[in-house]
Protein backbone atom coordinates (compact mmCIF):
# COMPACT_ATOMS: atom_id res chain seq x y z
CA UNK A 1 0.00 0.00 0.00
CA UNK A 2 2.86 2.34 -0.56
CA UNK A 3 0.69 4.67 -2.50
CA UNK A 4 2.12 7.30 -4.74
CA UNK A 5 1.32 10.77 -3.60
CA UNK A 6 0.79 13.99 -5.35
CA UNK A 7 2.19 16.88 -3.41
CA UNK A 8 2.61 20.56 -4.08
CA UNK A 9 4.48 23.37 -2.45
CA UNK A 10 2.92 26.58 -1.29
CA UNK A 11 4.51 29.30 0.84
CA UNK A 12 7.42 26.96 1.51
CA UNK A 13 5.18 24.24 2.98
CA UNK A 14 4.51 20.87 1.43
CA UNK A 15 0.86 19.96 0.92
CA UNK A 16 -0.58 16.55 0.12
CA UNK A 17 -3.10 17.08 -2.66
CA UNK A 18 -5.28 14.17 -1.56
CA UNK A 19 -5.52 15.53 1.97
CA UNK A 20 -6.33 19.02 0.79
CA UNK A 21 -9.05 17.85 -1.61
CA UNK A 22 -10.56 15.45 0.92
CA UNK A 23 -10.41 18.10 3.60
CA UNK A 24 -12.19 20.59 1.39
CA UNK A 25 -14.86 18.02 0.56
CA UNK A 26 -15.45 17.29 4.24
CA UNK A 27 -15.51 21.02 4.89
CA UNK A 28 -18.07 21.56 2.14
CA UNK A 29 -20.28 18.64 3.22
CA UNK A 30 -20.26 19.76 6.84
CA UNK A 31 -21.02 23.39 6.03
CA UNK A 32 -23.73 22.35 3.59
CA UNK A 33 -25.30 19.94 6.05
CA UNK A 34 -25.26 22.33 8.96
CA UNK A 35 -26.48 25.18 6.80
CA UNK A 36 -29.30 23.03 5.47
CA UNK A 37 -30.30 21.83 8.94
CA UNK A 38 -30.08 25.18 10.63
CA UNK A 39 -32.55 27.07 8.44
CA UNK A 40 -35.73 28.20 10.18
CA UNK A 41 -34.84 27.59 13.78
CA UNK A 42 -37.94 27.98 15.90
CA UNK A 43 -39.09 27.30 19.43
CA UNK A 44 -41.24 24.47 18.12
CA UNK A 45 -38.68 22.35 16.27
CA UNK A 46 -39.26 21.04 12.77
CA UNK A 47 -37.78 17.86 11.33
CA UNK A 48 -34.47 19.39 10.31
CA UNK A 49 -34.13 21.25 13.53
CA UNK A 50 -34.80 18.07 15.48
CA UNK A 51 -31.89 16.35 13.75
CA UNK A 52 -29.58 19.25 14.50
CA UNK A 53 -30.79 19.50 18.07
CA UNK A 54 -30.27 15.82 18.60
CA UNK A 55 -26.72 16.14 17.32
CA UNK A 56 -26.04 19.16 19.49
CA UNK A 57 -27.50 17.38 22.51
CA UNK A 58 -25.35 14.36 21.76
CA UNK A 59 -22.06 16.27 21.59
CA UNK A 60 -23.05 18.41 24.57
CA UNK A 61 -23.65 15.18 26.44
CA UNK A 62 -20.17 13.95 25.54
CA UNK A 63 -18.65 17.10 26.97
CA UNK A 64 -20.85 17.16 30.06
CA UNK A 65 -19.86 13.63 31.05
CA UNK A 66 -16.27 14.70 31.64
CA UNK A 67 -16.75 18.43 32.31
CA UNK A 68 -19.77 18.47 34.57
CA UNK A 69 -19.65 22.06 35.77
CA UNK A 70 -20.57 25.36 34.19
CA UNK A 71 -17.33 25.27 32.17
CA UNK A 72 -18.78 22.69 29.79
CA UNK A 73 -20.79 25.42 28.07
CA UNK A 74 -17.76 26.92 26.37
CA UNK A 75 -16.69 23.59 24.86
CA UNK A 76 -19.95 22.67 23.16
CA UNK A 77 -19.16 24.22 19.81
CA UNK A 78 -15.67 22.77 19.81
CA UNK A 79 -16.97 19.25 20.55
CA UNK A 80 -19.73 19.59 17.98
CA UNK A 81 -17.38 20.68 15.21
CA UNK A 82 -14.76 18.11 16.15
CA UNK A 83 -17.25 15.26 16.22
CA UNK A 84 -18.93 16.19 12.95
CA UNK A 85 -15.65 16.79 11.18
CA UNK A 86 -14.05 13.53 12.27
CA UNK A 87 -17.24 11.58 11.63
CA UNK A 88 -17.65 12.88 8.10
CA UNK A 89 -13.93 12.47 7.45
CA UNK A 90 -14.11 8.85 8.61
CA UNK A 91 -17.08 8.19 6.36
CA UNK A 92 -15.70 9.94 3.31
CA UNK A 93 -13.14 7.28 2.45
CA UNK A 94 -15.75 4.52 2.66
CA UNK A 95 -17.96 6.00 0.00
CA UNK A 96 -15.51 7.88 -2.15
CA UNK A 97 -12.02 6.63 -2.69
CA UNK A 98 -10.82 8.15 -5.93
CA UNK A 99 -7.57 7.18 -7.56
CA UNK A 100 -6.32 8.58 -10.83
CA UNK A 101 -3.30 6.87 -12.42
CA UNK A 102 -2.47 5.21 -9.12
CA UNK A 103 -2.47 8.50 -7.28
CA UNK A 104 -5.16 8.88 -4.62
CA UNK A 105 -7.07 12.12 -4.70
CA UNK A 106 -10.01 11.52 -2.40
CA UNK A 107 -9.95 9.37 0.74
CA UNK A 108 -10.60 9.66 4.44
CA UNK A 109 -8.42 12.53 5.65
CA UNK A 110 -8.25 10.76 9.00
CA UNK A 111 -6.50 7.80 7.36
CA UNK A 112 -3.43 10.01 7.04
CA UNK A 113 -1.52 10.40 10.34
CA UNK A 114 -1.10 14.13 9.84
CA UNK A 115 -4.74 14.97 10.28
CA UNK A 116 -5.55 12.97 13.46
CA UNK A 117 -2.30 14.28 14.92
CA UNK A 118 -3.38 17.81 14.06
CA UNK A 119 -6.67 17.30 15.88
CA UNK A 120 -4.86 15.73 18.82
CA UNK A 121 -2.56 18.74 18.87
CA UNK A 122 -5.56 21.08 18.89
CA UNK A 123 -6.90 19.14 21.88
CA UNK A 124 -3.53 19.32 23.63
CA UNK A 125 -3.29 23.06 23.09
CA UNK A 126 -6.89 23.57 24.14
CA UNK A 127 -6.33 21.54 27.32
CA UNK A 128 -3.24 23.56 28.24
CA UNK A 129 -5.01 26.81 27.41
CA UNK A 130 -8.07 25.89 29.48
CA UNK A 131 -5.89 24.91 32.41
CA UNK A 132 -3.96 28.17 32.29
CA UNK A 133 -7.11 30.20 31.84
CA UNK A 134 -8.80 28.64 34.82
CA UNK A 135 -5.92 28.29 37.28
CA UNK A 136 -3.39 30.84 36.09
CA UNK A 137 0.11 30.07 34.82
CA UNK A 138 1.59 29.35 38.22
CA UNK A 139 -1.06 26.92 39.42
CA UNK A 140 -1.30 25.25 36.06
CA UNK A 141 2.37 24.45 35.77
CA UNK A 142 2.49 23.51 39.44
CA UNK A 143 0.16 20.70 38.43
CA UNK A 144 3.11 19.06 36.70
CA UNK A 145 4.92 18.77 40.05
CA UNK A 146 2.15 16.77 41.65
CA UNK A 147 1.92 14.63 43.65
CA UNK A 148 5.69 15.09 44.21
CA UNK A 149 8.20 17.17 42.24
CA UNK A 150 10.08 14.25 40.74
CA UNK A 151 6.87 13.26 38.92
CA UNK A 152 7.60 16.12 36.52
CA UNK A 153 9.09 13.96 33.74
CA UNK A 154 6.33 11.39 34.20
CA UNK A 155 3.65 14.07 33.94
CA UNK A 156 5.21 15.58 30.84
CA UNK A 157 5.52 12.13 29.33
CA UNK A 158 1.86 11.51 30.15
CA UNK A 159 0.87 14.60 28.21
CA UNK A 160 2.89 13.36 25.28
CA UNK A 161 1.40 9.87 25.38
CA UNK A 162 -2.09 11.30 25.68
CA UNK A 163 -1.46 13.34 22.59
CA UNK A 164 0.13 10.48 20.67
CA UNK A 165 -2.44 7.82 21.57
CA UNK A 166 -5.32 10.16 20.86
CA UNK A 167 -4.09 10.84 17.33
CA UNK A 168 -2.74 7.40 16.51
CA UNK A 169 -5.82 5.57 17.74
CA UNK A 170 -7.99 7.43 15.29
CA UNK A 171 -5.47 7.18 12.49
CA UNK A 172 -4.86 3.47 13.06
CA UNK A 173 -8.51 2.50 13.04
CA UNK A 174 -9.42 4.46 9.95
CA UNK A 175 -6.21 3.61 8.12
CA UNK A 176 -6.67 -0.09 8.81
CA UNK A 177 -10.26 0.12 7.67
CA UNK A 178 -9.32 1.81 4.44
CA UNK A 179 -6.41 -0.53 3.81
CA UNK A 180 -8.53 -3.65 4.26
CA UNK A 181 -11.29 -2.16 2.13
CA UNK A 182 -8.66 -1.48 -0.54
CA UNK A 183 -7.30 -5.02 -0.31
CA UNK A 184 -10.76 -6.52 -0.67
CA UNK A 185 -11.42 -4.26 -3.62
CA UNK A 186 -8.16 -5.35 -5.23
CA UNK A 187 -9.14 -8.95 -4.66
CA UNK A 188 -12.55 -8.34 -6.23
CA UNK A 189 -11.01 -7.11 -9.46
CA UNK A 190 -8.09 -9.57 -9.55
CA UNK A 191 -9.72 -12.71 -10.96
CA UNK A 192 -12.80 -11.89 -12.97
CA UNK A 193 -16.41 -12.64 -12.05
CA UNK A 194 -15.80 -15.32 -9.42
CA UNK A 195 -13.64 -13.23 -7.13
CA UNK A 196 -15.98 -10.30 -7.60
CA UNK A 197 -18.96 -12.36 -6.42
CA UNK A 198 -17.01 -13.61 -3.44
CA UNK A 199 -15.51 -10.25 -2.53
CA UNK A 200 -18.58 -8.04 -2.93
CA UNK A 201 -20.42 -9.25 0.20
CA UNK A 202 -17.18 -9.17 2.17
CA UNK A 203 -16.58 -5.62 1.07
CA UNK A 204 -20.13 -4.66 1.98
CA UNK A 205 -19.74 -6.26 5.38
CA UNK A 206 -16.43 -4.52 5.92
CA UNK A 207 -17.82 -1.18 4.87
CA UNK A 208 -20.69 -1.57 7.31
CA UNK A 209 -18.23 -2.43 10.02
CA UNK A 210 -16.09 0.54 9.07
CA UNK A 211 -19.06 2.85 9.44
CA UNK A 212 -19.45 1.46 12.92
CA UNK A 213 -15.75 1.89 13.65
CA UNK A 214 -15.72 5.39 12.19
CA UNK A 215 -18.63 6.45 14.41
CA UNK A 216 -17.10 4.87 17.50
CA UNK A 217 -13.74 6.49 16.81
CA UNK A 218 -15.29 9.94 16.38
CA UNK A 219 -17.14 9.40 19.65
CA UNK A 220 -14.03 8.16 21.43
CA UNK A 221 -11.91 11.00 20.11
CA UNK A 222 -14.31 13.67 21.35
CA UNK A 223 -14.86 11.93 24.68
CA UNK A 224 -11.15 11.53 25.36
CA UNK A 225 -10.46 15.08 24.24
CA UNK A 226 -12.94 16.45 26.75
CA UNK A 227 -11.50 14.16 29.41
CA UNK A 228 -8.03 15.59 28.79
CA UNK A 229 -9.43 19.11 28.93
CA UNK A 230 -11.31 18.35 32.14
CA UNK A 231 -8.14 16.92 33.69
CA UNK A 232 -6.50 20.28 33.17
CA UNK A 233 -9.50 22.24 34.43
CA UNK A 234 -10.16 20.21 37.56
CA UNK A 235 -6.53 19.51 38.40
CA UNK A 236 -6.90 20.63 42.00
CA UNK A 237 -9.86 18.44 42.80
Amino acid sequence: MDEAKSTFEFLGLTFNTANIISGLIVFAILIGLVFFLSRSITLRPGKKQNILEWLVDFTNGLVKVSIPGKESKGYGLWAFTLFCFIFIANMLGLFAHIEVNGITYVKSPTADPVIPMTFALITLVLAQYSGIKRMGYKEHFKGYLKPVPFFLPINIFEELTNFLTLGIRLFGNIFAGEMLAGLIANMAFSGGVLTFIVAAPIEMFWQGFSIFIGSIQAYVFVTLSSVYVSQKIYEEE
Binding site: N16, G23, I31, T81, V114, I115, T118
Partner: peptide, 18 residues
Amino acid sequence: GFNVGDAVFFALCFLILM
Protein backbone atom coordinates in the same frame (compact mmCIF):
# COMPACT_ATOMS: atom_id res chain seq x y z
CA GLY B 1 4.46 11.12 5.60
CA PHE B 2 4.20 14.25 7.61
CA ASN B 3 3.46 17.37 5.68
CA VAL B 4 3.38 20.41 7.93
CA GLY B 5 1.31 22.13 5.27
CA ASP B 6 -1.50 19.60 5.75
CA ALA B 7 -1.46 20.13 9.47
CA VAL B 8 -1.68 23.89 9.06
CA PHE B 9 -4.39 23.50 6.46
CA PHE B 10 -6.54 21.25 8.65
CA ALA B 11 -6.03 23.36 11.74
CA LEU B 12 -7.15 26.41 9.77
CA CYS B 13 -10.02 24.46 8.27
CA PHE B 14 -11.11 23.42 11.72
CA LEU B 15 -10.99 26.96 13.09
CA ILE B 16 -12.87 28.39 10.11
CA LEU B 17 -15.44 25.59 10.39
CA MET B 18 -15.89 26.35 14.05
